[in-house]
């Protein structure tokens, strides 16, 4: 338990030498620890995210949010592992997977630390029954969640970059690898989020684990459609 805390604090501090030592030997135990951090941390954040809509939505989101991270890491294991040697970074497939998983677990721990704050915000939001203020509350909650997730994501990726630098011949290679990973992870992660929606749930719609049209359309087509409508072209 104590060892586990020390290892997570290495990742949180982001000291290059300490991070490098974390990847010298990638054990099953360390992977399980990171997975547990994702499931617990992101699950907690997911619960407070959805609980404003209803406790059932909170439970659904507590399952779906960690699932997206784990599925993204698993789905991109091969391509992420191929990018590393191609861009001159000395990370093998196992270490690549461990590094990506570790960055997700750090983001999850940060989100877990924000969970009480989000919970307090949800406690103070007007209930759904007050129709007039529910939409405003929904937008306010969305905005705060986006800020929290952006902060966690930025902090986690800064640590990931520090780690990649330890295995890179130069800063350019490290940056190129990070951006490659971010791009491919965003591509898969955003589509998984689209399939697994809703996370908060619009006040007007019923609580569901999956939308009935979950596998119809994709995130980018919808985004393009929205932009088309917005700019009217």
């Amino acid at each position: 338990m104590n060892e586990s805390r020390i290892r997570f604090s290495h990742w949180l501090r982001g000291d290059g030498a300490e991070l490098k030592s974390e990847l010298v030997v990638v054990s099953l135990t360390s992977l399980i620890r990171h997975l547990a951090a994702i499931v617990i941390g992101c699950g907690l954040f997911g619960f407070v995210m959805g609980v404003w809509r209803s406790p059932l939505q909170g439970a659904y989101t507590a399952v779906k949010l960690p699932a997206i991270l784990v599925l993204t890491a698993l789905g991109n294991t091969l391509i992420n592992g191929m990018f590393a040697p191609l861009l001159g970074v000395e990370l093998n497939l196992k270490k690549t997977f461990a590094a990506v998983l570790a960055s997700y677990s750090i983001a999850s721990l940060i989100l877990a630390a924000f969970a009480p704050l989000i919970g307090f915000l949800v406690w103070n939001l007007p209930p759904l029954s007050t129709v007039n203020s529910a939409n405003r509350a929904h937008h306010a909650l969305l905005l705060v969640l986006v800020i929290a997730i952006a902060f966690a994501g930025t902090a986690a990726n800064r640590r990931l970059l520090t780690l990649i630098r330890q295995f890179s011949p130069d800063d350019g290679s490290a940056l190129r690898l990070l951006w490659s990973w971010l791009t491919i992870n965003f591509l898969l992660g955003s589509q998984l989020s689209w399939i697994l929606r809703p996370f908060i749930g619009s006040p007007q719609l019923v609580v569901q684990f999956f939308r009935s049209d979950a596998l119809h359309g994709n995130f980018y087509a919808t985004l393009a459609h929205t932009l088309k409508g917005f700019f009217d072209f």
Binding site: S9, L12, R13, D15, L109, I110, A112, P116, L117, G119
Partner: peptide, 18 residues
């Protein structure tokens, strides 16, 4: 204090504190 304690610990670690 209890609501903000976890974020203080995480921020301390992110700032490099041991």
């Amino acid at each position: 204090g209890l609501i903000c304690l976890p974020s203080l610990y995480i921020f301390a670690c992110l700032g490099g504190s041991r």
